[in-house]
Design a protein around this nucleic acid. Structure first.
Length: 426
RNA sequence: GGAGAGGUGGCUGAGUGGUUGAAAGCGGCUCCCUGCUAAGGAGUUACAGGUGGCAACACCUGUCGAGGGUUCGAAUCCCUCCCUCUCCGCCA
């Protein structure tokens, strides 16, 4: 959520920053509401002060022996009633303004960081670095072809169970998925992250706190009887893990690694990535999440990205790091690095992780602050996939495929798999 | 799901209509004292919004689970909701 003080005092600055994201907005209406709300609050609290004085005057009179039904007391009571009526009227208007203000503020995305490269579309994203050597061979198969030979998942039968864009992993496929999850969690926990296994159903307040609501309701599956939603990413429960809290600065940074299944409607992606593990309504992900001091989130962003890269490096999968330009930033992010893994079969780099600094955007929505001496400040939050598990499996299958149709298991995964390669079993 | 109990500051826990934003204790912080340690003494210690000030800070309003209501005045009375605990039932 944007800082309403910033909107009130410097609407032009805010509008200019939103313009960098490609949004043409007129904030004058919002500013008017914010200013009126403040004026109203000032007026109302002054009246309430007067009412409080009236109440104290009654108490003083009664204490000094005046009868409760005496003229002096009656007069004060009427005065109190008159004030109360005025306050009630002002409060009603103020509540309406509060609600309108919050509703509008919640709909605006985060402001891009100054370092975020300007751009008009994803074509303007900037490649930062590459790691590893992509394997290129026209004969390479795509991961779903390999998976079919190896018997790793069921496609048609998954439609029977749920519907399209759901997958059922079986045999070595199921085992490989589980191995990847364990491996990623072990790696991150060894590097200082605390493991979390969060609820998969989350309430509306949690989705609002991390930025999915109110704008992106159509992207999530909803259990409408209960004000619960299937979480689209562990970022949602992790943000709300500390929602409403005031945290001692010595406790920061808090770093969490959470495995969770993720559920997304993928509205508007009909026909894209219809085969394989790339785009599903349900997928597994290990998510990294930081609550950090507002002065150190820039550094933290480099670190969380490096932590996600560590997974790809350990698996020896070639990838590149892309910095998203202002036009391609997610709603809550001020700055984002995407990791794109090389898919040898598809012959292309595909997003496998997104590491974002959300600065105080989610912290303001979720009221998460740090206590620093006498002062309280909103802290900063960062999130990064470490990694999307299904896409990691796809990359492994394509990168480690052998001419004989088998797939080698990366060395670090072998203890988790109990084998060195996947072969057609049946 | 049924029956009961309860939600007060960082924590424990008083408080049933009038300077109670809240006793007391613990914890934290500052200072003093004592070779060190232990112990002791004094003070201080909630959050949000707003106004003024360069600032330290001062002042106003709100907040005792949330939202309504009664009253000149509510932590305290009434209503609704949420949550926690205990017992029973059900269940992996």
């Amino acid at each position: 959520m944007l800082d309403q003080r910033l909107v009130r005092n410097q609407p032009d600055t805010v509008a200019a920053l939103l313009r960098r994201r490609g949004m043409e907005v007129d904030l004058s209406g919002l500013q008017t509401i914010a200013s009126r709300q403040r004026d109203l609050e000032e007026h109302r609290s002054g009246l309430q002060a007067e009412g409080n004085r009236t109440g104290r005057a009654v108490a003083a009179l009664i204490r000094t022996g005046a009868r409760p039904d005496s003229d002096a007391v009656t007069a004060l009571r009427e005065q109190g009633n008159a004030i109360k009526r005025q306050v009630a009227q002002l409060e009603q208007e103020e509540h309406q303004l509060d609600a309108a203000l919050r509703q509008q503020l919640l709909a605006y995305p985060n402001l891009p960081a100054p370092e975020c490269p300007e751009g008009a579309s994803e074509a303007d994203n900037v490649e930062i670095r590459r790691w590893g050597e992509p394997r290129r061979d026209e004969a390479f198969k795509q991961h779903w072809e390999l998976a079919e030979t190896l018997g790793l998942f069921e496609t048609e039968r998954s439609v029977r169970i749920a519907r399209s864009r759901f997958i059922t992993l079986v045999g070595d496929g199921a085992r490989l998925e589980r191995a990847l999850i364990s491996f990623m969690l072990d790696l991150h926990c060894g590097r200082g992250y605390r493991e979390v296994l969060p609820p998969v159903l989350v309430n509306s307040a949690s989705l609002t706190g991390s930025g999915q609501l109110p704008k992106f309701a159509e992207e999530s599956f909803r259990c409408s009887d209960d004000d619960l939603w299937l979480s689209p990413t562990a970022e949602v429960p992790l943000t709300s893990l500390h929602r409403g809290e005031l945290i001692a600065s010595e406790a920061l940074p808090l770093r969490y690694a959470a495995y969770s299944p993720c559920f997304r409607r993928e509205a508007g992606s009909y026909g894209r990535d219809t085969r394989g593990l790339i785009r599903l309504h349900q997928f597994n992900k290990v998510e990294l999440y930081w609550f950090c001091h507002p002065d150190s989130s820039g550094q933290a962003h480099q670190q969380i990205t490096a932590d996600a890269e560590a997974v790809l490096q350990a698996l020896e999968l070639p990838y590149r790091v892309i910095e998203l330009c202002t036009a391609d930033l997610g709603f809550s992010a001020a700055r984002t690095y995407d990791l794109e893994v090389w898919l040898a079969g598809a012959g292309t780099y595909r997003e496998i992780s997104s590491c974002s600094n959300c600065n105080d955007f989610q912290a303001r929505r979720s009221a998460i602050r740090v206590k620093e001496g006498k002062r309280n400040r909103l802290l900063h939050t960062l999130n990064g996939s470490g990694l999307a598990v299904g896409r990691t499996m796809a990359a492994i299958l394509e990168h480690y495929q052998q001419p004989d149709g088998s797939v080698a298991i990366p060395t670090v995964l072998q203890p988790y798999m109990g084998c060195e390669q996947l072969r057609s079993c049946c």
